[in-house]
Design a binder for these strands. Structure first.
Length: 120
DNA sequence: GCGGTGACGGTCG
DNA sequence: CCGACCGCCACCG
């Protein structure tokens, strides 16, 4: 039986849900993982990611829409290229969050009954 | 076991 | 719009 997920795994589980072409902020990810006041935990968890993992870490940026890695570091360019390849546009060094922010639908909703389809 | 640190964020000048 | 300050807490020496 799987034990309850640790901090990192919970963060990663949220990040895995971010769709292509969208970005989430560290604070948003942390909150969805159950740590509403610990954005840094999200950063820490991503930093701890094993290489080659399937977690789309590049879709997580800071609340200003900027990549939170030193520009000098090659990781900055890597993240930026991956985002641009998904259609995320930058204005200067900043992403337009109004356009690309992830708006997750609530997960544990009881059971979203499909609405009756309108005729016509 | 303790203290500094960090892929952050909200607030205040 | 930008920078400084503090709060936050899992990691790592």
């Amino acid at each position: 039986m799987p034990r309850p997920l640790g901090t990192h795994a919970r963060i990663w589980a949220v990040v895995r849900r971010i769709p292509r072409g969208s970005v989430a902020t560290y604070g948003q990810v942390a909150a969805l993982a159950g740590y509403p006041t610990q954005p840094r935990l999200a950063g820490y968890a991503l930093h701890a990611l094993p290489m080659g993992s399937a977690v789309p870490w590049h879709r997580v940026v800071n609340a200003q829409g900027r990549i939170s890695l030193p520009v000098l570091d090659g990781q900055y360019q890597l993240q930026r290229s991956m985002l641009e390849a998904e259609g995320v546009a930058f204005r200067g060094d900043r992403i337009d969050l109004a356009r690309h922010a992830w708006h997750p639908r609530r997960r544990k909703a009881p059971r979203q009954r499909s609405l009756p389809r309108r005729r016509g």
